[in-house]
Structure formats: C-alpha cells, structure tokens
C-alpha cells in the first residue's frame, strides 16, 4: 500500500500530463489549468513544511548554542517579511515592498555581481594548457572574449565573422549532441517514472 498508492498516482498523473501535451495550445482545457494549479498548491504546502523546518533547524542550533546571533538573524529575517505583510499588505510602497526593494534585492544583485570575480579567478586557475582539449577551450574562449570586447575590432576586423561561424557550426554541433543526449536521458527516466520502475524518490533502490 505504501508503495502501490504513490506509484499508481504517479502513473495516472504521468499519463494525464502526457495526453494533455497534445491539446491545441490555443484551446487549453480547464483540466490543464486545474492541474497547473495543483502543482502550485502542493508546492505552496511544501513550502510551509520547508519554512517550518528552516525555522526549527535554526532554533535548535540556537538552543545548542551554535552561533545564536547569526541563527537569530536567519529567523528574524524569515519572520520579518510576513510581519510587514500583515501590517500593511503587499501593495507598492508598503513596508514589505520597501524591504524587498532596498534590502533583499540589492543583496541578491550583489551576490550575482560577485560572479564577475569568480569568473576571473576560475579563468586564472582553470585555463592551464594541460592537454589538447584545454588548449582548444582556452583558444576559443579568448577569441570570443577579445572579439566581443570593444578593442576586438581594432585587433582584427574579421573577429565578428569568425565568432559567428564558430558559434553557428562547430559549437552548435556539440551543443546539439549534448541536448540530444539530455533529451534521451530524460525520455528514458520519464518512462521509468511513469511505469513505476523508478522508485528512488520513495526511498527504494
């Protein structure tokens, strides 16, 4: 029962979603939209479980004396946003939106911006010409970087055409093979899931 029920549910929803794929995209049925609502709703309940787990893990750390200040900041942040939302809602210019736009969003953008430094450090470490493969990778990356930089056209006028050719032919050829491989792996995995052979997610091997 503990395995049969989930596997049956997986089969039914799998076949249903497969069949719905062939609906005309302009006249999606009510069933299609209802199912999309289902996933959102299950996710939202899952999120509640996740947030409870998040807060309880941080609380247990505090009670064990593990970084009480920093774990307190975690809990404070997680509770602050719902509190602000309860005070004056989610509309523009609310406390909630202010906190998002001026505290959370700038920090998110800054973490994203850190990537520029990481790209540089990865390039220094990784661009060692160890073998033929890494020499090819290094050369192509340099051609693209120099060619796309403003100075590129001063170095050589043909960079644009060369980069476009690399992108359209040798690079695309490998990309297509990678995509097909991922497609094949996804197809066989999906078949295993639908027919109940794939049960790792239920804890089986």
């Amino acid at each position: 029962m503990r395995k049969f029920l989930p596997i049956s549910v997986s089969f039914v929803f799998g076949v249903l979603m497969f069949a719905l794929w062939f609906e005309d995209s302009e006249s999606r049925s009510m069933l299609h939209f209802t199912l999309i609502d289902y996933w959102q709703i299950i996710f939202a309940f899952g999120l509640l479980v996740g947030v409870v787990s998040f807060i309880s893990v941080a609380s247990r750390k505090i009670s064990r004396g593990e970084e009480p200040f920093y774990n307190g900041v975690l809990i404070f942040g997680a509770l602050l946003m719902p509190t602000l939302a309860m005070i004056d809602g989610l509309q523009p210019n609310s406390y909630f939106q202010w906190m998002f736009e001026n505290v959370q969003a700038p920090m998110q953008s800054s973490v994203f911006a850190l990537l520029a430094f990481f790209v540089a450090s990865a390039a220094f470490r990784g661009f060692r010409a160890r073998n033929a493969q890494s020499i090819i990778l290094l050369l192509v990356a340099l051609i693209v970087i120099i060619g796309r930089a403003p100075m590129g056209e001063f170095v050589w006028g043909g960079f644009d055409e060369l980069i476009q050719w690399i992108r359209d032919f040798p690079s695309t050829s490998a990309k297509r093979a990678v995509l097909i491989g991922i497609g094949l792996g996804s197809v066989t995995t999906s078949l295993r899931v639908i027919f109940g052979v794939e049960r790792t997610y239920l804890g089986e091997r």
């Binding site: 794929w21 309940f45 078949l191 639908i194």
Partner: peptide
C-alpha cells in the same frame, strides 16, 4: 503528493524533451 508531482513532471517532460531536445 510527491508521486503526483513527479509523475506529472515525467508525463510532461516526455513529449517536451522529444520535440525540443531531439
């Protein structure tokens, strides 16, 4: 619910992957 989501994901991925990726 996990099985419902995973099964549905597989059902949707199958034709999508065949068409877009292959």
């Amino acid at each position: 619910p996990l099985a419902a989501m995973i099964g549905a994901g597989a059902g949707a991925a199958l034709p999508a992957m065949l068409e877009a990726r292959i």
